[in-house]
């Protein structure tokens, strides 16, 4: 009875034993894995574009007061993105980010609607830049406007 137990134990030990081949296979497999990872990691990191730091403060001359009549709007370059200059029917000048908060389209001023409109998915904003109808989830970012003489100066920060 004892010898049968011994045999079973031996057999189980033999099955669980790490053979020289399986050990070498393990070493080879892990080194191949390490090589693959050490190649893939830099490649994947390289593929991810770095963030280009943009200054939080920005001041831009957006145009001249005489070029923008009441109840009209125009796009101007603000840093690396587009911004929208709006002159309300009452004559007040405001500036907003022209990037629709829905899916990144560029919005425009609609004089017939007296509001800001995004053509991509029919999003509407009022003259305060608030999202009033359609899919946009958030209001447009508003920038500070100063008029120096005839020049409209828009700034952020």
């Amino acid at each position: 009875m004892n010898s049968v137990k011994q045999d079973v134990r031996d057999e189980m030990e033999r099955m669980n034993k790490t053979t020289r081949r399986s050990f070498l296979d393990y070493l080879l497999g892990t080194s191949v894995g390490a090589v693959v990872v050490s190649i893939c990691y830099p490649v994947l990191s390289f593929l991810t574009p770095p963030r280009v730091a943009e200054s939080a403060d920005l001041t831009v001359v957006a145009g001249k007061v005489k070029d923008i009549p009441p109840n009209s709007g125009r796009i101007f370059k603000f840093g690396s993105r587009a911004a929208l200059l709006v002159r309300t029917p009452a004559g007040e000048i405001r500036a907003f980010s022209a990037t629709c908060t829905h899916l990144d389209c560029t919005v425009q001023y609609r004089d017939d609607l007296r509001g800001i409109w995004c053509a991509c998915h029919d999003g509407h904003y009022d003259l305060q830049g608030r999202n009033v109808s359609g899919p946009p989830p958030r209001p447009l970012e508003q920038f500070k406007v100063n008029v120096r003489g005839d020049e409209i100066v828009v700034s952020r920060g």
């Binding site: 830099p42 390289f46 991810t48 770095p50 280009v52």
Partner: peptide, 9 residues
């Protein structure tokens, strides 16, 4: 200078 591992590539 800016891209991750750009110098390496």
């Amino acid at each position: 200078t800016d891209v991750s591992f750009g110098w390496l590539v």
